[in-house]
Simulated scan of single mutants.
Amino acid sequence: MQGGTLTATGGTTGSGSYGISANGSVTVSDATVTATGGTGKYSYGLYVSSNSPSVTLSDNGSLTARSESADKAGGIYFQNPFGSAGSVTVGDNSTLLANSVILYDNSFTEKPLAPTGNGSWLIYGQSDQPSAVGGTYTLEENITIESGNTFTIPAGSTLTIPEDKTLTADANQLVVNGELVLEGTFDNATELEGSGNLVLGEITLTDDEGIGAYAGYHLKLKSKKVTYTRALPVNSQYGTICLPFVPTSVAGGQVTYYQVLELESDEITLVETDFEAGKPLFYQTSGTGSITFSAESAAGVELVTTPATDNFMEGTMSVATPTAGYFLKNGNIYPIANGDKVKVKPFRAYVKGQNDASQASVMSVNVARP
C-alpha cells in the first residue's frame, strides 16, 4: 500500500474471516490501512502466510489490525509452518495498533511476535506480548482492555492518553514500567503498579487540599505543569515552604531559601541553601500580596508526595499539628509550649525540638553570612 487509505473488513462465516489475507510481505508506506477480521471459526485482521512473512511500515504509514473473538484469532497472524522467520517493523513516524501479533511457526505453536523499529505501537489484547508498547504511542481512539488481558508498558516506552480519549481497564490489567501520560481518562490510575512514571496534565496545588489528591498514587508522579500560589502575610519577611516540585519560575517577588544551621534557646540561625523537592525550608521574599511557584516541562516535572526531613526541620504536605518544636507566625518564631498543638498548613515546615523552661517566648532569627 503506497499512499491513500484502505479499509478492509471481514464478514461473518462458518470458517475463516480475514480483513486482509496475503502471501509473502506486506508494506504500508505513507498510507493508512485498517484491517479487521470478522466473525468465524478463525478471525484475523491481517493474515500472512509465507516462508518469511513480514509487515513493514514506513514514511508515516499507519496500520490498524484487529480480530473478533474466535477459536483462532489475531490482529496480525503469521503462518509459517515450514520455518521460524517472521517480522513486524515499524519505521520512523509510523504507527501500529493491534490487539495481538502472533507467529505460528514450525514448532506448531502460536508465539507472540514483538515489533521492532523507531516508530510507535500499541498491542493491547495479548497478555504474553513482550513489547506491548513501543516508542511513544498516542491513543487516537478509545480503547477497552478486555477482561483477562494484561499488558506492560516497558521501560523506555510511553503510552499517552490525550484529553479527549479514554482507556478502559482495571488497574491490574496494566503495568507501567515506562511512562503513562494521562491527560484524558483512566479511572484506576491511583492503583497502577510498576517501576515507571505517571505523567499527569496541569496541576494546581492549594492550601485547602494539600497533597491529598495525589498522595494515593503508587507510581512515581510527574506533571506537565504544576503551580502553587502562596498568600503573603502583611509585613512578613520570612515564611516556610515545602513543595513537592522544584520551581523553575517564581512570580511576585525575589525569593531566597534557607535551612536551619543552629538552634539555641533564644535564637535560630539560618543559612542560605538550594531548593529541593520535598525539602523543608525557610524563605525570605521582597514580594507582597502573593508569590507563585511553578514549573513546566513537556517531559514532565517530577513530584514527591512525602516531605523530607533534616536535623532541624519537618516539612508538611498536608495539615500537621505538632505538639513540640517551633513555628513561624507573622514573621516571628515561637516555641510550642505546655503541650499545646499548633496547626501548620500544607506546603510549609516547622522546626523540630523539645522545649524547656529556659526557652525564650519569641525566638530571634539570625542569618549566617558566607
Rank of each mutant, 00 (worst) to 15 (best):
D71L: 05
T292D: 06
Q359V: 10
G11R: 14
L167N: 07
Q254P: 08
T36K: 12
T316L: 13
A308H: 00
F347E: 06
A360M: 04
E183L: 15
L182E: 06
G4L: 01
S21I: 04
Q237W: 13
Y228C: 02
Y214S: 05
N197S: 15
D207C: 13
N338D: 06
N338L: 00
E272L: 00
Q254S: 12
F327M: 08
N355T: 14
A65E: 11
A295P: 13
S49R: 12
G40N: 02
G38W: 09
L198T: 04
G252L: 05
T166I: 14
V234R: 11
I241L: 15
V255M: 04
I161W: 13
W121P: 02
G252V: 09
G289M: 05
T285P: 11
G16S: 07
L270D: 01
F293D: 07
L243K: 14
K165R: 12
D274P: 02
T32H: 05
Q284A: 08
K41G: 07
N93R: 06
Y137D: 07
T160F: 12
V181S: 14
S17Q: 01
W121I: 03
S54L: 02
S17V: 06
A299T: 10
L174D: 13
S87G: 02
T168C: 08
V28W: 08
V260K: 07
Q354W: 05
V246A: 11
E179R: 14
A8P: 00
V342L: 05
T13C: 03
N23V: 05
F151S: 06
G216L: 08
Q359I: 07
V365Q: 03
F186C: 07
L198G: 01
V362K: 08
F78S: 05
T206Q: 12
E314A: 11
I20S: 02
L192W: 14
V226P: 06
L263M: 11
F327T: 07
D356P: 02
V28F: 07
A213E: 14
G287E: 08
I291A: 01
D187F: 04
E193C: 00
Y326E: 04
T185D: 12
G74A: 01
D310V: 13
P322D: 14
G339P: 10
A231T: 12
G252S: 04
P53T: 11
R230C: 08
P53Y: 14
T285K: 09
Y217Q: 11
Q354E: 12
R66C: 03
V88S: 04
S120G: 01
S127Q: 07
S17G: 01
V101H: 00
G61Y: 11
N197I: 14
S127V: 10
G300T: 12
Q129R: 00
A308F: 00
A215V: 01
I203D: 01
A132F: 14
Q284T: 09
S107G: 12
I333F: 13
S15H: 00
A368P: 00
G216N: 15
Y47S: 08
S87E: 08
S249G: 04
N80E: 12
T321G: 02
Y137E: 09
A189V: 12
A31K: 07
T305C: 05
E191W: 06
L205F: 10
F293W: 10
F108Q: 09
S62G: 09
S94M: 04
F275T: 11
A155K: 09
N99F: 13
L103S: 01
L159T: 10
V199T: 10
S84Y: 10
S43C: 06
Y228D: 02
